[in-house]
C-alpha cells in the first residue's frame, strides 16, 4: 500500500496512522454504560420493528404516492412478498358517479393474508421502546458531549480527500481507522450521524404520518411528506436503508474483531 496516503496532518496531529494509534485497536475501545444499554434496547426494538414491519407490508404489498392508495388505484410498485401480491380477488367495479373517469368501488372476494393483529401491536410497542430510548440517548449524547467528541468530525477531519482515503482503506479491509480522540473512523462517523439524525427521525416521523389521530393534531406532517401514502412509501425506503446499515454494521463488527467488539459493547470495562 502507498505509505503516503495513510497519513494526514490536520494541523496538530497525524491522522489515520492505523496500526499505531492505540484507540484503533478494538481491545481498547470503551463504551459508556448508557451507550451500551441504549444500544441494545434500540437493537432489540429495531429487530422487532423490522419483523413486524415486514408482516404489515405482506398484508398490503403495494406502495403509492399521495394521500389515497388502494387496490383500485394505480400503485408506484408492488412487491411479491405474500399471497396478497396481485391477488385479483375483486368483484366487478361500480362507479360512484355517472361520469367518465369516476372513482369506483368493488367488493373483495379473496381471503387475504393478514397477521396485522399482533403485527401492528408489536410494531407500535417496539416503536415506543425505540422512541423513548432514542430520546434518552439523544439527550445523553448532547449533554455529555458524546456526539461532539465521538461522532462529530474534528476540525480539518472532514474533507473530500480524507473521505476518499477512508473509503480506500475500507476497500483494502483496513477497518478500524480511528481518528483523534474518537473511537470511530471518518466514514463510520458520517454513517452513524446519518442514522441517528436523519434515518431514524425520518422513519419515526413518516410512521406517525400514517396515524389518523396524530395527523389530526399535527396536519403539517401530511404536508411535509406529501400525504399518508407517500409517508408510507418513504417509511419503507428509510426502513430499507436502516436494514442495509444494520447488515454493513454487523459485517464491520465481524471483520474488525467480533469477540472484542461484542465484549466492549457488553461486559467489557
Amino acid at each position: 500500500m502507498p505509505k503516503k496516503s495513510i497519513f494526514i496532518y490536520n494541523g496538530n496531529q497525524l491522522l489515520f496512522p492505523m496500526m499505531s494509534n492505540p484507540t484503533s485497536n478494538p481491545q481498547n475501545i470503551r463504551h459508556k454504560p448508557w451507550v451500551k444499554v441504549t444500544h441494545w434496547i434500540i437493537t432489540l426494538s429495531f429487530l422487532a420493528l423490522t419483523l413486524s414491519g415486514f408482516i404489515i407490508l405482506m398484508c398490503h404489498p403495494r406502495l403509492y404516492w399521495g394521500e389515497a392508495g388502494n387496490d383500485l388505484t394505480p400503485a408506484l410498485f408492488e412487491l411479491p412478498v405474500s399471497r396478497n401480491y396481485k391477488h385479483g380477488g375483486w368483484e366487478n367495479t361500480t362507479a360512484f358517479y355517472d361520469k367518465a373517469g369516476s372513482p369506483v368501488s368493488a367488493s373483495r372476494t379473496y381471503e387475504i393474508f393478514n397477521q396485522n393483529g399482533w403485527g401492528r401491536s408489536l410494531h407500535f410497542l417496539s416503536a415506543w421502546f425505540l422512541v423513548i430510548t432514542g430520546l434518552m440517548y439523544l439527550f445523553a449524547g448532547f449533554f455529555t458531549g458524546h456526539f461532539r467528541k465521538q461522532l462529530w468530525p474534528g476540525p480539518g477531519e472532514f474533507s473530500a480527500k480524507s473521505v476518499r482515503l477512508d473509503l480506500i482503506n475500507h476497500f483494502r479491509k483496513k477497518f478500524p481507522t480511528s481518528t483523534g480522540d474518537s473511537k470511530y473512523g471518518l466514514l463510520q462517523k458520517i454513517t452513524y450521524l446519518k442514522v441517528i439524525f436523519f434515518l431514524l427521525p425520518l422513519v419515526a416521523m413518516t410512521g406517525m404520518t400514517m396515524s389518523p389521530a396524530i395527523t389530526a393534531a399535527y396536519p403539517f406532517l401530511l404536508k411535509i411528506f406529501f400525504g399518508a401514502q407517500s409517508a408510507r412509501t418513504i417509511h419503507f425506503f428509510a426502513s430499507f436503508a436502516l436494514v442495509i446499515f444494520l447488515i454493513i454494521h454487523v459485517v464491520m463488527v465481524i471483520r474488525s474483531g467480533f469477540k472484542q467488539q461484542m465484549r466492549s459493547m457488553t461486559i467489557g470495562k
Partner: peptide, 26 residues
C-alpha cells in the same frame, strides 16, 4: 399528549378516490 378535539383533515371533491369494500360486503 395530543390536543383533545383536533379535526381530521378534510379534502376536496376532486380528491375523492376509488374505495374498496372489504370485510362483510353483503
Amino acid at each position: 399528549l395530543l390536543p383533545g378535539q383536533s379535526m381530521a383533515k378534510e379534502y376536496q371533491q376532486s380528491d375523492i378516490s376509488s374505495f374498496p369494500a372489504t370485510g362483510t360486503t353483503n
